[in-house]
Write a protein that binds this DNA or RNA. Structure first.
Lengths: 202, 202, 202, 202
DNA sequence: TATGAATGAGGATTCATTCAT
DNA sequence: AATGAATGAATCCTCATTCAT
């Protein structure tokens, strides 16, 4: 440890977040007991409280960590490989972002999708959700201006498309999207694109 | 009721089911307390136990009641107006079934969608879920045989389509799908049809 | 039970208050566990929470109940038998009030005396303490105006006199002042009167 | 320290004792956490356990240190300036002993006064208490034999007199007796002497 | 030697369930 | 038959104590 070492061990905080996320995904926030979180993280119960003030704080931290991770993957994927040449290509990048996140962090994705029940979500957590929504509606609006995405309320289209993706991911439990053959995944991508694509457009 | 009619009052059982469903939809099965269910049903806590052996039984009864209701609506809608003339028409009927159910029983629909977490679901409840799935995959398979629905694993297509519908319904909370203008709903129907429709087909 | 019967059973609340007071007197507020309070009251732990929101509330209710009881006894005793003929007689009545209270509610008296530690005392509780203080300083001031009680800060004299009485009561644990012979008690009364009495006065 | 001097640093032990005493006085033994003691002593929690086997041992050491300090001050004061010429003078010396201790170690005095609750006090600690009591009753008995102190159970008179002094000290919180003007202190001394003094005596 | 992060037994509180009314 | 007060197991959280650094 160097002189800048902090009292809190970031590895343990991370371990706890991961443990919490996977349990919340399996059994619900309310249905998950603190000792279970500790056990899965291979840590004593008391340790949770060195890193988080209580269960609610842990739940929010887990939610924010997961949402932020999704948002980062989406942003990364969108920016990869320079400016997109077409709306379809841009869609492919967004799809890739979702796909990568749901593939590498399946439990986190499932956990996020259950949090319409905001029993415990703090305003800060909800703000992060809004950022992801904004990311998606921005894409839809660009596509609509380019005449490539069908008309209608962008939020509604987002709801349909993300809903379809979520349905796919949940259906593939427990392994998640990783267990899907590449061509099946490509077929799903095409199907969702057709959900958004304006008929009669290029 | 026959001459051996029991002391149980079916209205109260129904009231409790409705109360439980709406609370489970709002706060999760685990996050809902028995006294809260009783209160919303305007009944004493003790009364719940005259109608259901315990919380888990209540949860399963609520789930089964809701799933059965959805299945009934779907079957009804499909059979309405004689044999369908086309896959698209059949899709319209299925869509109508979902739409009617989500419109009239919004909370029940939301509750059902959260029950991927089968912490408490009995095999009987899961069997009912399978029946709804079968209903949907049957439709997909008929459509595929007719060359109207795209190729691929029917269950995966079901997951995408129902996922899309679910996304729409959740997005429209709290009022649910009833607050959607008829043309918006029609647009959503078209979008989901395009998700399923085989390109190049009629 | 009549139609005005309340949901809360006042006997249980009272039982809990008594149980809490005696335990707090024996082991400190902090050193007393909720299950111990329940056990002494012959009640389940959960029942405490039907009557008091939590430990702190129970502690304050116990304190207020005890202080109020003391104040009532003091007021009663002072008003007994018409106007006092002398300061000494008035002192006798005040002494009687203290004596009766400490005799019948020994544990409550001891509990009250420990609450200089206001770790948990709410402003309302402290206000009641102030009322008892006022009662005592009023008496001292009347005595000083009559030339019968020595000069000096009334609060300081109160502190000395009540301190002396408290020392006596604590020393007589566990039975308390009841186990004191009447003439010993009378001797103590005289001694404390001499603590207050102005020398050279009548 | 001799050549076998241990690794223990007596300054730290002392620091811990002082820290413990002041916290126990403020918040009760039970209400004081070990980390709080460590923090006030500017020492790591673990260090407490190098000097004391546990909380109970710390509590007893603190109690004994405080009681011993009081006893030492009393003995010192009594022996100061040769043989006392009168019981009143002897009383003055005892009073001075109490006064000096309560003045210089206010928190310790308050802490001692709360320890009628012997939840944690070991027999050794109680033996020390008995020594202080004996010191005081010896004085009372001498005074009674000299006809200067009123008749009655010496322990009871001790309880009254020490109780009065204690009441005074507590009333003067937080600064304690140091904030009292010299003439007020002298007045209190006279009052307590009158509590003990046999009427009609010289 | 000193530290404070980690631990888990123990304490406060909640809530499914029972049962006397 | 209906009720809701009473119960205590199960939950969240605290804090005395340990031990690796």
């Amino acid at each position: 440890m160097n002189i800048h070492s902090v009292a809190r061990n970031p590895d343990i905080a991370q371990l706890l977040l991961d443990s919490a996320i996977s349990l919340f995904a399996e059994r619900t926030y309310e249905g998950t007991q603190m000792p279970a979180v500790a056990q899965r993280a291979q840590v004593g119960v008391g340790s949770i409280y060195r890193y988080f003030p209580g269960k609610e704080a842990l739940g929010n931290a887990a939610f924010q960590y997961a949402k932020r991770g999704l948002l980062d993957r989406l942003t990364e994927a969108l920016d990869e490989g320079g400016p997109a040449q077409s709306v379809r290509e841009e869609f492919g990048r967004v799809w890739l972002g979702f796909t990568r996140y749901a593939g590498s962090r399946h439990e986190a994705f499932v956990f996020l999708e259950h949090q319409q029940h905001d029993t415990f979500l703090a305003p800060e957590s909800q703000a992060l959700s809004a950022e992801v929504d904004r990311f998606a509606t921005d894409f839809i609006e660009r596509g609509q201006r380019a005449g490539e995405i069908r008309d209608g309320d962008p939020q509604q289209l987002v709801a349909l498309a993300i809903g379809a993706f979520t349905g796919l991911v949940k259906h593939l439990r427990p392994g998640g999207i990783t267990q899907l053959a590449p061509d099946s995944l490509a077929a799903a991508e095409d199907a969702v694109w057709d959900l958004l694509h304006r008929k009669g457009a290029s």
